[in-house]
Write a protein that binds this DNA or RNA. Sequence first.
DNA 1: GCCATGGCTAGTA
DNA 2: GCCATGGCTAGTA
Length: 102
Amino acid sequence: MNEFTEKVIRIISSIPEGKVVSYGQIAALAGNNRAARQVSWILRSSSGKYNLPWHRVVNGKGIISLPEHDGGNLQRELLENEGVEFRLNGAVSREFFWNGST
DNA sequence: GCCATGGCTAGTA
DNA sequence: GCCATGGCTAGTA
């Protein structure tokens, strides 16, 4: 596993409950702001292995990218259970975005 | 080739 | 909408 992947996993692991972060934010925090799509791959391949809070990652618009039939519905449910609120357009309210600090 | 993204543009009201 | 990204999940040689 390369350094970027390790950083991404560590960052995702530290997302607080009730907060969300975008793929691009995670990539930037890990040192490569153009690797947003790789973050999605790492989530798919490593979420179970490292018990990652995969549901706290959404796209830059605050919208769930995972298809509804492939876990998207579950993702929204998990977030709502943590107190995250969605607008009518399906986007997470801005106040629920984590800025990367602890 | 694929894709759980993101940034920018164009067209409309 | 469109297309540049970029690492490996695919499939073939």
